[in-house]
């Protein structure tokens, strides 16, 4: 279920091709029943979109299967956020097709299946609203104009506990740190029983320690079968966690497993030479370097506990 796609990416020649079982990129993939491949969660084919005559996205094809953990990276202005809007059906492609769970994205109406974690500045976090009230919104697609039933409330409380925010449910969202706030947004998605989590640069302005805990949470959710699509600027964080990287700059420059991305020069060509954090080597290639082993310790800790984020 977690097979990376390799769609026409010129740099991905070293990545495994269409036959899923032949890959060794994801060791835990063998436990998935790869024989019956379900409908892709996200299916863009030859999507072109522009706000003006100049296309922001050009001939983008991308398919994401259930359970995948995909990071979309790319420089500023590369069309990442626009891509997300097309995926979510907020924008209609000028040409090409966009499908969500097998339906055209624009007319897809089972909104509860999608959890959206906004950029820091996108939600009105200054308003008086508690964590519980935010998480409650996840149930709104289910309840419509009715009030929440006790089962709905149970889902809300469970989601808050899952992200480790039980002590904060009556706090105003504006009083939280950046990392805690993003956890609340994830809880909102969980409360709605979303099976696709879409995050738009979720860790901008979040301190490093909280970022690690945040990605630990995403890892845990992905292990439970949640499909995750993430736009991220911090390449280091992405390559530590995502299974598959899509490098976007107007069109798809690279699409393949994270290891192959690190080995390729796709990022350098897409981002230019100025990007920091690129020197980070793939785990396993690290030998003897102090920094690298420190990173490994950190990721082990994260995998084991994921209980940080104390501030």
């Amino acid at each position: 279920m977690t097979m990376p796609h390799t769609t026409a990416a010129p740099d991905a020649t070293d990545a495994t091709d269409a036959v899923p079982d032949a890959t060794d990129a994801a060791p835990d993939a063998t436990e998935a029943d790869a024989t019956t491949s379900p409908d892709p969660v996200i299916d863009l084919s030859n999507v072109t979109f522009g706000y003006t005559a100049t296309p922001v996205l050009e001939d983008v094809s991308l398919a994401v299967d259930p359970g995948e953990y995909v990071a979309v990276v790319g420089p500023n202005g590369s069309g990442k956020s626009t891509l997300l809007k097309v995926v979510l059906g907020l924008l209609a492609p000028d040409s090409g097709t966009a499908r969500l769970f097998g339906e055209p994205s624009r007319s897809f109406d089972d909104g509860a299946r999608i959890g959206h974690v906004p950029q820091r500045t996108d939600a009105a976090v200054g308003m008086p609203i508690t964590v519980r009230e935010v998480v409650k919104m996840g149930r709104f697609p289910h309840v419509g104009v009715r009030g929440l039933s006790s089962a709905d409330w149970a889902a809300v409380e469970e989601a808050i506990e899952t992200v480790g925010m039980a002590g904060f449910s009556t706090r105003r969202i504006g009083e939280l740190s950046g990392g805690q706030r993003q956890r609340a947004f994830i809880a909102r998605a969980l409360a709605g029983d979303a099976d696709l989590l879409v995050l738009d640069e979720p860790t901008v302005g979040v301190d490093a320690e909280s970022v690690e805990a945040f990605y630990g949470l995403l890892d845990a959710l992905n292990d439970d079968g949640m499909t995750i699509v993430l736009i991220e600027h911090d390449l280091g964080a992405v390559t530590d966690h995502a299974e598959r990287v899509v490098c976007l700059n107007r069109t798809v420059r690279f699409d393949g497993p994270t290891e192959a991305f690190l080995g390729s020069d796709a990022f350098a060509r897409a981002f230019g030479a100025t990007v920091g954090g690129i020197e980070r080597v793939a785990p396993g290639d690290a030998s003897g370097d102090d920094d690298a082993s420190g990173d490994d310790d950190a990721s082990r800790e994260r995998a084991a506990a994921s209980g940080g984020d104390r501030e």
Binding site: G111, P118, M137, R188, V198
Partner: peptide, 22 residues
């Protein structure tokens, strides 16, 4: 009173509200 859920969602987070089908 009837539309309080939708009004709250749209007020707090318009993008997520749109994604959720409102």
């Amino acid at each position: 009173v009837v539309t309080r859920n939708q009004l709250l969602y749209v007020t707090f987070d318009e993008t997520a509200a749109a994604v959720s089908g409102i």
